[in-house]
Nucleic acid binder design. Structure first.
Lengths: 216, 216
DNA sequence: TATGTAAACTGCACTGAGTAGTTTACATTT
DNA sequence: AAATGTAAACTACTCAGTGCAGTTTACATA
């Protein structure tokens, strides 16, 4: 079992017992919710997994909903941070976009990313703020980063993009192709990073070059 | 209330009373499951909505799972049929791809399509065969249709596509851009058909023309 | 070093609500 | 007459959240 002191803000000042318990609860809840969803997870199991009494769980969180919200927001935050790389206009375009895109696709398709997406999708109706937060603070920023990059490169005369926002969204989704859907809707395992790399590179090439021999 | 006779195979031969009840149950279950998901739906409410006693529901379906499976497979089938148009290699490429793509995107983002997707995603773990069936008999065929089209047009020398399968998947996802994700993960309403049309047309243009002024 | 205190934790029984599926006794349809 | 449907009560179970009596921990003071 990893030392809880190595978890959150400071690992120099030892955490209070109460804070240790809270982290254990969050960690257990994270596992159980990811695995079973909101309805499938029981507060008894979460408490047991956290090695904590059920009463303690309710001392820290007023309700199952509150615990779920806290846990999910934390996971969304972590995923957002991991998804966003910077794009340097000075680097080689194909290379820069491929690196950015591979990371993006891997972050989405990697098992825990997939599980997080599933939970979000499954619970939009009951927890609208979660999906909204993930989109507003995560996906939106990723798209904006790419859009800004496309705008700059268009201004530099390297490419021609009319609507950078629209093109960025289209480009990003073209990177994962059918896999996003397949992984979300079936039990198929996510593709290997090597395959992702290849798929993204191909999509970047198509985006940059086009496929038509003689443009109409 | 619509006449159940107008629903399924034949509306000439009147359906047996038993069959009428079965259709009423399916129709009610469809509504409730789409709205509340598997766990949120109760068999009592479904029976009540179908104007049928709970015992009758259990006379037709052995369990809640069985009813859910039947209802969902039916909806998947209908959605698959609606998603798949033909692609004539002789038509203008941009026009053909735009028409095909608009229909595809609209079918996915339209409210009931969205709800169906959400349910599938939310229940993959408990009903793996559903998502698998939807992918194998639906998405896969759509991709294959586009891939075959790209192969033919490449052979005709109109375009250059190395891996038609991969390109088809990438092309199809580039059509909906961020919207697929946004609609799935937030409560945002689906875009208007006009907006879809515009977005798809732009993506088709990019796919066909590319964006690079001077190819590297 | 010993002791007091407040806050937090434990364990467990309990309430109350919801629900899948069954049973029974009777009615309707074909 | 046989099959099918109805209504309502009933079983058996899960699970969120509470109450409570007693214990542990951190920390301050003596």
């Amino acid at each position: 079992m990893p030392d809880p002191n190595w978890q959150k803000p400071s690992c120099l000042i030892p955490l209070s017992r109460s804070e240790q318990k809270r982290l254990a609860i969050i960690e257990a809840a994270r596992k159980i919710f990811l695995d079973k969803g909101f309805d499938g997870a029981s507060m008894d199991v979460i408490a047991e997994t956290a090695n904590v009494s059920k009463r303690t769980v309710y001392n820290h969180y007023a309700s199952k909903e509150a615990l779920f919200g806290d846990v999910m927001l934390g996971m969304c935050q972590a995923k957002m941070d991991a998804m966003l790389l910077t794009l340097s206009p000075s680097d080689d375009m194909a290379e820069a976009l491929t690196e950015f895109g591979s990371n993006f696709v891997n972050q989405i398709l990697e098992p825990e990313g997939k599980a997080l997406l599933r939970i979000l999708v499954a619970h939009v109706d009951r927890f609208p703020e979660l999906g909204q937060a993930f989109f507003d603070n995560g996906a939106k920023e990723v798209i904006a980063t790419v859009a800004e990059y496309l705008r700059i490169q268009t201004q530099a005369g390297l490419i021609t993009v009319d609507d950078p926002q629209d093109a960025a969204g289209s480009f990003l989704t073209s990177l994962h192709g059918e896999f996003f859907f397949r992984v979300l809707v079936t039990v198929a395992p996510p593709p290997e990073p090597a395959q992702v790399q290849k798929m993204v590179a191909a999509a970047v090439q198509r985006f940059l070059h086009g496929v038509l021999v003689r443009p109409v």
